[in-house]
Amino acid sequence: MIINNLLLKLRNRDTDNIKKTQEILLSMRGKIEVLKDIQAEINIRPGGSNYDIILITKFSTLEDLDKYLAHPKHLEVAQFIGSVLDTQASVCYKL
């Protein structure tokens, strides 16, 4: 199992914008066959240096992760994220 974690810090960090971003991330659920599981959790301890959302995605293989990254639904969501993103960090690992 491949786990990919993406931390997102948004430019506009108000509650409504963070919630909307979470909903858009979760809109990929059930739309990308290789995506085995998806979570988008909002940070409950916001602050200046903290990130706003963690996106956790799970795949069977690294090849499936690559297919996800190229999928039209992911590209649509990524375009939105790029428009609201301040900074990001990621960690990908194998279980």
Rank of each mutant, 00 (worst) to 15 (best):
E41A: 11
A40S: 13
T61W: 10
Q88C: 10
A78I: 12
Y51Q: 04
V84Q: 01
L26V: 02
D37W: 12
K9Q: 13
N4C: 10
Q39E: 10
E63W: 08
C92A: 11
G82A: 12
F80Q: 00
I42M: 01
G30K: 05
I81Y: 01
N4S: 14
H74Y: 05
I56G: 07
T15S: 09
L7E: 02
L10Q: 09
T21R: 09
R11Y: 12
L69W: 03
H71K: 07
Y93S: 07
V91K: 11
S49W: 10
Q22W: 13
K36H: 09
I56W: 04
M28I: 04
R45H: 14
Q22G: 12
K73D: 14
I3M: 13
L85H: 12
P72Q: 04
L6R: 15
R45N: 14
D64E: 13
K67G: 06
K94H: 14
H71S: 08
E23N: 13
N12R: 14
L75H: 04
K31G: 01
K31T: 00
L65V: 00
L6K: 02
N4V: 06
M28R: 11
Y51K: 01
T61Y: 13
I24H: 02
E63V: 13
G47W: 09
H71L: 04
I38N: 00
I32N: 07
P72G: 02
N43R: 01
T21W: 03
V34G: 00
I32Q: 07
I54L: 08
E76P: 07
E76W: 11
T57I: 02
L10V: 06
D86C: 06
I32E: 08
E63I: 08
K58L: 11
V91A: 14
K31P: 02
N5K: 09
C92Q: 14
I32T: 11
I18E: 00
K94T: 15
S27T: 04
G47L: 04
T61D: 07
D37Q: 14
R11T: 08
D14V: 03
I81L: 15
R45C: 15
L75C: 05
D66C: 03
K94S: 15
N12P: 02
E76I: 08
R29W: 03
R45T: 15
I3P: 00
N12Y: 12
N50E: 13
I2W: 07
V77K: 07
D14M: 10
K20M: 14
S83G: 14
V84S: 00
L55F: 06
I2E: 10
Y68F: 14
M1W: 03
D66I: 09
L25K: 02
A70T: 06
I53G: 01
D14S: 02
A89E: 07
D14E: 12
